[in-house]
């Protein structure tokens, strides 16, 4: 199994039941589409259980960052259980404590405040990506 060293895997919780889960997903997409598009790959977390050994090899092939909405840390726990130990974890509810003025309410359409928080989370993920790749940006 070839280990990839020039890309980082990002596994986000899907958090359908919580606004923080939506922030996790949107932040992950911002990293993949805008901040670090050439450096990142992702996989749907539930595919670890629903998929094959190929999918479960994800965190063994890519150094992987877990992005979790809440302290249940499904992304970290699920990745560790089925695939491999994540090299880092980002927890949205922890980052939110740094920005108490940014309120999160919606699970669906994000407000301007929620989009700003998603960008803050995305920037923290991107910083972790750079650390994993040994780069400074």
């Amino acid at each position: 199994m070839a280990i990839v060293t020039d890309k980082v895997g990002i596994v986000s919780c899907s958090g359908e039941d919580l606004p923080e889960g939506t922030i996790s997903r949107i932040a992950t997409r911002i990293v993949m589409e805008k901040l670090r598009p050439d450096d990142t790959v992702t996989i749907c977390l539930p595919l670890f259980l629903a998929g094959s050994e190929d999918e479960r090899a994800f965190a063994k092939v890519f150094p992987t960052i877990a992005v979790d909405g809440c302290d249940k840390k499904c992304a970290e726990v699920g990745t560790n259980k089925y695939s491999g130990k994540p090299v880092a974890t980002v927890v949205v509810s922890e980052i939110m404590k740094k920005y108490p003025h940014l309120k999160v309410k919606s699970r669906d359409k994000l407000s301007a405040e929620e989009k700003e928080l998603a960008l803050k989370v995305a920037e923290e993920i991107a910083t972790k990506v750079d650390e994993v790749l040994g780069r400074k940006k």
């Binding site: 899907s14 958090g15 039941d17 539930p46 699920g78």
Partner: peptide, 8 residues
């Protein structure tokens, strides 16, 4: 519910 809660 959050699907990953079933996964874990």
């Amino acid at each position: 519910i959050c699907l990953p809660l079933l996964t874990i």
